[in-house]
């Protein structure tokens, strides 16, 4: 009897065992190990030396590049995250319209996501080339002399943002599935009430998908801090270190300068920053995220809930 109960309890864990082992070995293990490393001066071939908080102190006191790279990454995130979400939402709205051939567009918009970051970097390297690039050629047709995107430090970060917005597809798809799930009768009711499409978007679509917006917001904040591939291959951190992102800074400390301990400390500081940002977003979410289960609460806060019928 007792044995049976134990086995019943154990079976679910058995099912997720492969994942758990993978998680412990490939995620938690290295994670903890990197925390340990961050307290050492850990060169490549010689023996590691314990330095306590030395790496962290160095970062905040003597390493000027640390704060520079951090600011660059924050700047990137501040522009890229909202821009990316707006584009994704816009495209998602487009592909939910009942138009012929919409499936083709859905595929076209999504395709860039499955291209590897390396290929995207090479592609955009050509597009953005100041002298021969197609982007500046198109601008010249409009009578605009395009900047030297990858040479002028004032434009380079924008160039990186444009190139990264290319991979908007997966976020678009998440928005798309959520928008598709909104019952059609809500819109029908709104139409009868005389709400125009813009009104419908702001009063129905947007409030209902706020949980998805929250999800996309958090994942894109995280991914924007982790952006490495693109800057490494497209700009190499330049021109004049204007796109020397925090991720690249960490990577170079580890694999170029071979300061593995210091780079681990960099990574942990980034982890803490992301943690704080995520916590802030979560904290704020109670003010703007709408869950179906608490429809009443939101209505009280003054947001109009146009959900009718189905209840």
């Amino acid at each position: 009897m007792k044995q049976k109960r134990i086995s019943r309890k154990a079976i679910p864990y058995l099912f997720i065992l492969p994942w758990i082992i993978g998680f412990l070995v490939f995620t938690i293990g290295p994670l903890i190990f990197s925390l340990v490393m961050s307290f050492f001066d850990w060169p490549l071939a010689a023996d590691p030396k314990f330095v306590g908080f030395g790496n962290y102190i160095e970062m905040f006191t003597s390493d000027k590049q640390f704060s520079k790279s951090l600011i660059i990454s924050l700047k990137y995130a501040a522009i890229f995250v909202p821009l990316n979400m707006i584009i994704a939402l816009f495209l998602a709205m487009l592909i939910t319209q009942p138009v012929r051939g919409v499936k083709i567009f859905r595929t076209i918009f999504y395709i860039p996501t499955v291209i590897s970051g390396v290929a995207v970097s090479i592609l955009w390297g050509w597009i953005l080339n100041g002298d021969y690039g197609v982007l500046n050629y198109l601008l010249s047709l409009l009578g605009i002399e395009g900047p030297k995107w990858l040479v002028d430090p004032a434009w380079a970060i924008l160039a990186v943002i444009i190139a990264s917005a290319f991979g908007v597809g997966s976020m678009m798809l998440i928005f798309y599935t959520d928008i598709k799930n909104i019952p059609i009768d809500v819109y029908e009711a709104a139409t009868i009430d005389g709400a125009n499409p813009a009104r419908q978007f702001f009063s129905i679509t947007l409030p209902i998908i706020t949980p998805t917006i929250l999800f996309n917001l958090i994942t894109s904040i995280i991914s924007s801090f982790q952006q490495v591939t693109l800057v490494m291959l497209l700009t190499g951190g330049g021109p004049l270190k204007s796109t020397y992102f925090y991720g690249l800074y960490t990577y170079n400390n580890a694999f170029k300068h071979h300061k593995l301990g210091y780079a681990s400390a960099n990574a942990w500081v980034m982890f803490l920053i992301i943690l704080v940002l995520t916590a802030l977003v979560f904290k704020s979410s109670s003010a703007w995220v709408f869950y179906e289960s608490e429809a009443g609460g939101v209505a009280k806060k003054g947001k109009k809930s146009k959900r009718g019928g189905k209840r």
Binding site: V151, P239, L240
Partner: peptide, 10 residues
């Protein structure tokens, strides 16, 4: 970085 500051046209 120093070389770039000397040679970058901007």
């Amino acid at each position: 970085l120093s070389f770039e500051r000397v040679f970058n046209p901007s």
